[in-house]
Amino acid sequence: MEVPVMFTLQQFVDAPPSEVVRAFTEPEPFAAWFVAEGFRTPADRVRIDVRPGGQIAAVFVGDAEVPFTLHFGALDLPHHVELRFDDPAEEITVNLTELPDGRTQLDYRSVGLTDEQQAPIKPGVATMLTHLAAYFS
């Protein structure tokens, strides 16, 4: 059995945390960045219940439709968001730190994936975070 591992990523965004947090709390900005290769996430197919225990329910649309859900953990908006995927089991922590120039440093931490699961997911998340930054530029 493989041991769960952690990975971290960092992204700088040209907007303050009060704007960047919308990428996790509103359908349109969420749909703009939460995409996978060959798929898009239509904003009208995203439902977000922003509260501890609430969920994000959406659908990747490509040659097939792939529904997915994430559950919110602890929230300290606009600076801290915890999310959980059930399959594969993954705990995600996002910290948004305001920089002196009004930009945001986004620190993304994933815990729970095995090395084998992480291999394709980490580069995909890096691409997603680039899309997130582009949305706010």
Rank of each mutant, 00 (worst) to 15 (best):
D63Q: 09
A74D: 13
R84H: 13
L9Y: 04
F7C: 02
T41M: 04
T41V: 04
T93P: 05
Q10C: 02
D101P: 08
E2Q: 15
E65L: 01
Q105V: 03
E37S: 06
T8K: 11
Y108D: 09
I48E: 02
V61E: 01
G102R: 12
T93R: 14
V21A: 12
L129N: 05
V50A: 14
A15D: 09
Q10L: 04
D107I: 02
L77D: 13
T97R: 14
M6Y: 00
G53W: 02
E116I: 05
I48A: 01
S18I: 12
I92R: 06
G124W: 01
A31N: 10
T25Y: 00
E19P: 02
P17L: 08
V59K: 03
G112L: 02
P27D: 09
V66R: 04
F60P: 05
T25W: 00
L77F: 11
Q118D: 13
F24T: 11
T104I: 03
V125T: 11
D14N: 12
V21E: 05
F39N: 06
P88T: 09
R109E: 12
L132W: 05
L129I: 11
A23Q: 07
G53Q: 11
D107L: 10
D63A: 11
P16F: 09
T41R: 00
E65Q: 11
E19M: 13
R22A: 15
V61S: 07
P42R: 08
V20S: 09
D87Q: 09
R84W: 07
Q10N: 07
A57M: 05
P67E: 03
T114N: 02
P52H: 12
E65N: 06
T104Q: 05
I121L: 10
R103K: 10
L106S: 08
L113D: 08
I92H: 02
Q55W: 01
I92W: 08
L113V: 03
A133E: 00
A57C: 03
D76K: 14
E19A: 15
A134Q: 11
P123D: 01
P4S: 10
H71Y: 14
F39H: 04
A31P: 03
E37W: 04
R84N: 07
A58Y: 03
R47Q: 15
F24K: 01
A31M: 07
D101Y: 01
T127L: 09
E82F: 11
K122C: 06
P27F: 05
R22Q: 14
T130R: 13
D63K: 08
G124L: 06
M1C: 12
T127R: 10
L9Q: 11
Q117D: 07
L129H: 01
L132S: 10
V50L: 10
S18G: 10
F39V: 01
D76G: 12
A133N: 02
P52G: 11
T127K: 08
M1I: 02
D87N: 06
G102A: 04
F136I: 13
P123M: 03
P78F: 04
P100Q: 03
S110Q: 12
